[in-house]
Each structure stands twice: as structure tokens, then as C-alpha cells.
Design a protein around this nucleic acid. Sequence first.
DNA 1: GTTAAGGCCATACC
DNA 2: ACCGGTATGGCCTTAAC
Length: 829
Amino acid sequence: MKFDFIPIDYGYFDFEGKNYAKITGRNSQGKRICVIDSCPVYFWAILNDKLEEKKINALIEKIKKICLDVKGRKTKVEGVELHDKKFLGCRVKALKIFATNYKDLHDIADCLGMKEIEKRRGYDLGFITHYVIEKKFLPLHWYEISGEVLHNSVEFGGIDSSLNVDFCIKAESIKKTDDKKFLPKVLAFDIETDEFRIGEGEILMVSLVSENFKKLITWKTSSSSGTRLDYVEYVKNEKELIERFIECVKEISPDFLVGYFSDGFDLPYLKARADKHKVKFSLGLDGSQPRFSGAGAGRGIGTGKISGIVHIDLLRFIQTAYSQYMQSETMSLNEVAKEFLGDAKKDFEMKHSSKILAGEWENYFEYNLHDSVLTYNLFQKFWPDINEFSRTIQEPPFETSRAGLSRYTESYILHNLEKFNEIPEKRPTNDEIGQRRRIGSSEGAFVMEPTPGMYENIAMFDFTSMHTSIIITHNLSKSTLLEKKEKGCNESPEIAEGKKKIRYYFSKETGFFPELMKEIFYLRKKAKEEYSKNKNTFTKARSNAFKVLSASAHGYLAFFGARYYSHEASASVLAFVRKYNKETIEKVKEGGYNVIFGDTDSVGFTLNNKTKKDVRQLLEKLNSELPGVMELELEDFYKRGIWVTTRAGITGAKKKYAMIDEDGNIKIRGFETVRRDWCSMARKVQNNVLMMILKEGNEKSALEYVKEIIQKVKDKKLEIKDIIIRTQIKKPLSEYKAISPHVIAAKKMKERNLPIDPGSLVEYYIARTREKKKLVREKVKLPDEKGEYDVDYYLRHQILPAVENIFQVFEIDTDELIDRKKQKKLSDF
DNA sequence: GTTAAGGCCATACC
DNA sequence: ACCGGTATGGCCTTAAC
């Protein structure tokens, strides 16, 4: 039988000691198909240099005889081949050692302690990754499959009869075909409970949303007088709720089951409650329960994998792939939905189910259903991105949606090594990671200290993908690093290592890492052009995928968990970053401009009496002097900009400025306005002050405005939303050495049984207290705690600090704006 | 008991 | 541990008086 097929979910199983990949996907008619396939399982033994042929043959014979009985599984070396390969760019002779089961590779590798063998590699990729590389059966691409349909077959222990799919097939051939449109079947879900701690409360309701499908299952009956909502299905109890949920998932049979924070909440909660009721939580297409891994006793959340269905926790994906480009200050469903959908959660005042009145349940149902609607719509929004990332790094969507930036880069490398005939490097051991961390980090980028003041007519240059273009241009990587200088090699600038100043040298022959980064660099350029020509969600997703991948190249080199980590290459990249930035600053100065700003890859300067044309000519000249793929871009022209001093006083503050472009758009960097751990009134005031000053070119109206606000604060006219301070909890509360206000707020929340975990955002305000308190933390109150805000605190610690450095540029002392005597009286009271 | 320096901590920039 | 280094600034902690 022959059919077209798109692989979506990858799993594997063992049968008679061998590994089989189990790939679930669809054909173009929408039939659900499971493909079973196998691949050779092997790893590499890299041989010592100059080993004689005779000795190699003897070694091969010896290895062929290896037979193991481990973990109740008999395994043996199935074959050994000699190959000419490359490892870290060097030619090597290597043995390809085949085994029965992937899980045994490590044990077999452990038997190869012979002195003839230098290194053992390629046993730690994971079977799925190994399989995808081996068979080039890539996720979310279209294929033509032919093979034998399994129908109540005894093969593989009768696996086909237990699988809830249209066909199960043993693959004979897999051929890549042209891409077709694919619309995945998606089911979003969300639960509501009384208790945040996993499994400790009852699940009150669960909502499910799919295409033209909305359902809410609950055992909480509403009053007979209440409006009956047509999507609500009433069941007897929580046990039935879970059973119905499982049935619904089976009926809809989605490719993707999507939640928001469902790795950390919804899925483990459902599983825990199912366990309590002794209900088998059989969501998998083979009837298996979700497998949770990585959670453990430690910190962080695990992942919930469902066999045959891709469980996506959208929060995790958005966090890694998008959060750095987002406006939202939190990753809550509400804010993320607002930003990407223009839709928000329904209003509902959360309370314990025992306190919900009969007529209120409908609102709760609406609220819960709408969360699933938002999750469903967000998935549709991000599907192009997940799709594009998954195809680019060639890892299945389950893994892709949970991977971090380093894994994106690493997967891209591993899946492209064969082009270079390269044997994969291994993951670092804990010892190696320890060593890498002990070496510490290298000196980073250069940041110029600006002279505080207001400037007019500003232009800004920046380097395109600076770090990545340096890696490519100077061929920097682990495998191209030379032990000593060679003729014509690439040479880093001088680097201070300890007390010495040294240089690192890199080969002139392009290494696979720089080559792959070059590929990404050009694909990024292409994708960006494509997007600007043809703007749609798919071109945007593609452009973003390569943008993220390209931006992670240097971070990967310097990441101690990376297979291709290189301290030397990273230090060299950063040395070049400093060199190019400083050189550019000098050259712009030489061109007759006044440089006022410089940070890592950008330079800002005033035009003085020069024209925009002059600036463009200068840019052209600078570009003609840059080597390789390095390129300087004109970021923009600005009408006006302001730089301030640090709080301490005289020196200019780095990474803190505001500019206005010719269309009146304001760009603010580093100021409290953009920091979420300042109260919104301080941020608003600062933002308005910057706007007025930049638009008008002077401080007069801004000063009047600040005076008004100060009066408003004194008159206690601020609302609670103006004074709330939001801060994130970054570690378990017990680990805090310094107990700052936000830790107190978190402790108060914990006392109320509210969930506080690393990552939680706490809200509080600073209240006036009866006795005089010395520490701010003694005045912390949660937003719903009664109290008056501390006028003195909000003036002196929020509003004034936000604006005083700005007015200092105009030599105005804002301290005088507060009548000290009057204030003293107030706080004494 | 008060004060200054130093450290912790969160958050931003690139 | 899950991409890096540079930088600001608030507030607590500690040491010294």
C-alpha cells in the first residue's frame, strides 16, 4: 500500500530487543496513520592515529564478539565497519559499531576501553534524533510511504490492534515529496480547581475547544433558574468528569492537545485526580497514560508526553521563542492573549467553589471556556512558528516547543553534520560542565559612557547579526581553534586572560560550525526579504525562526552545556565585538561627527552641520572597509534624544536613553518607564515627562506636570493600580538571603495558600504604618489589604527618582518640589 | 543606635 | 542548566563607630 503522509509525533518501542520508531501523522485525506519503521543503530569509535591495518582488523574482530546481558536484555554487536570520517574537522579513522538496541550503546561503549580507541561518540543523541538523522524522515514535511498495512497482525506483539488510528503500517519505503498544505487538528483545554497544588483539590470543570466545537464538562450543578448554556455537559462527579474528558479527546482525536501552563498544571492535575479515582488516564493513541518526566523533587516543571498526540504547553513555547520580542510584562494568558489576539480573559472574581452562589456558576463556566478559546486561538497564531522551528531544527514539535535556545542551535548542528562527514561531539559530563564554569566568563562587549544632555539630529548605525557575522568572517569555533599560530590563519585581537594578554588562532579552512552559521545567516536574510515582500503569518514565522536561531549562535558557543562549547572561540568573538565597535566609534568621530552613544553593536552620533546624505556616504565607506559578511546598517535618524546621569551623580548612565524619531515615535531604553518593578504612576510620569521634553525640546510643561502629580500624590488621590509594585520571585522563598519587600509580599501570599513558585509575580504596595518603621519591607501590604499608601515613600522612592535625573539635564533640582517641612509633619502624624 | 559600604536581587540593553 | 556579558538601582545586611 502507498499513501502520502506528514509525520507529526515521534515515539518508539522495543520489540524482541530491537528499537522501532512509531511515527504518527496524517495523509492528505486527514486519515490518521501510524508508521512503524526501524533504522540501523550504531555509534562511533574513533581510532588512534597511525594504527596499522592489521591491528585495526584484529580490533574489529574483537569488538564483533562483544555480547552483553544488561538490564535483563541480551544485546550484541551486530557488525563493525571501518570508515574515513571527520571529528572536529580532523580526518580520523573510525569504527561504526552496530548494536541491537539504542539503549545498549552506552554499555557497549563502556566495553571499549582499549588503548587503540581514542574516543567513543554518537551514543547520546536519543533514539528519535538518531532515527530522524538516519532516515531523513523529517517532522512536518510530506512523504510518500509504501509498506504493509498491519491488520490484527501478530507482528510487534499486536501493536496495531491497540492503536486508535485509521491505519498502522510497517514502512518499506519513505520518499520525500513536495510540500502540501497541512492544517492540524487542534484541541485546546483548560481546567478549574479549588486548590493550586497539584491534585490536592477537586477539578470543578474542564473545557474543550476545537474547530466548530465547544464543550465544558462539570459536575457542579447550577441553579435551575440560571441560564442553561448549551455547551455545558453535566456529569455526576469528578470521576465522571475525567472519564468524559478522556472520551472527548478520543472522539476528537486531535494531532495537538494544547494547554497554557499545562505541563505544570492542567495535565499533571488531571492525572493526579484520575489516579485518586483509580481511573486510567488513557489519553494516548495506544491507550497509555501521559508520561511525565523532568519534574522530580527538584525545581522546575516537567513535561507531559502523550503517545501519538502532541501535547503542547503554549506557555513554554512562547517563553523561549518569542518572549524577548514581546511587549507584555508577564506571560499570563491574559496579557499574551491581549498582545497577540487583541482578546482578553473574561472577568470573573475567582473564589473557592463553596463560596460561589448558585447563579454565579454560569459566569465561571463562561470564564473557563473562554480560556480554552484563547488557548485555541493562540495556538492557531503560533502554529506557523512551531511548524517553522520544528522543520528548521528537524526535531518533532513536542521537543521543539519545549526546547531552549541552545537546543535549537545544537539540534540544527546535529541534523546537519552529515554534510561534513562529521561524527557528533558528545554532551559534556558533569565534571566538564564544572570545569567550564570554573574557567568563568570572558570579557564582554564595550559600552561607551555617554555625556548627559539633550541632543538634536541624531543618527544610529548598528551591525547586522554582529556576533554571528564575526563567527562566520573569522571562522571561530571549537573545531577551528589552532594550538599555535599558522601562516595565513585567523587571529583574534588581544585578549586579557588573567594577567596575561594573549591571542587565539583559528584555521583558515572554514569549519562546519561557522559554515552552518553562514547558512543560517543567509537564510535569515532571505526570510527577512521574503517577509517584507510578502507579509503573512508564514513568512513572518520563517523570518522569526531564523532570527532567533541566528541570534543564538554566540550564546551557544559560550553555553557550558553545549556540545560545541568553546571558551576560546567565545572570548575571541567578544574581543572582535569590542574591536569593531570601538573602531566604528573612532571612524565616525574622524568623519566629523559627535559620537554620543555606543553599546555592543551600535553607534549613535549627532549630525552637527552634516546632512543625511553625508551620513549615508559615511556608512558606505565604513562598509567597504569591513571584512567578510560583516555589515553596518543605518538604524534610523532621530530628531532629538536625551541622556542622563546615574542616580549616584556625575557620570553618564549607560543603557539608559530616550529618543524621538522624525515621525514623533518615542524610543525609550533602560528608564524606569520600561521596568515592571516600578509602580505604574512613577512609570507613567516619567514616560510623560520624556514625551513632553522630547516633543517640545524643553522642560517647561513637563515641570508643571510633575508639580501637579506631586500634589496629587500628597492629596492621596492615587488609586491602588497606580501604586502597585510588581516583582518576580526567582527562587524558592527559603533560599533568599536578603529579605526584600517582594519576598515579604510572597510570604504573605503563601500564608493565604496562594501559589508561589519560582517565576511567580507578586504585587504589593507600601503602606503608611502607625509606628515609624525603618525598613520598607515592614510597610508592605498586598493589594487587597486595607491601608493608606505611604505618601513619603511614593514621592521619594518612586515619583521623584523617576524624574530627577531628567530634570537635572536642565539644571533643575526636583528636591525643592517637595516641601520638606510639610512632609515631616505628615509622616510624624 | 546610626551610617556607609558591600552584597543581593530584579530587570533592563544589546 | 537548559543562549551570553554589561549595567542600573533599590533595599537589605554587615561592619564600624
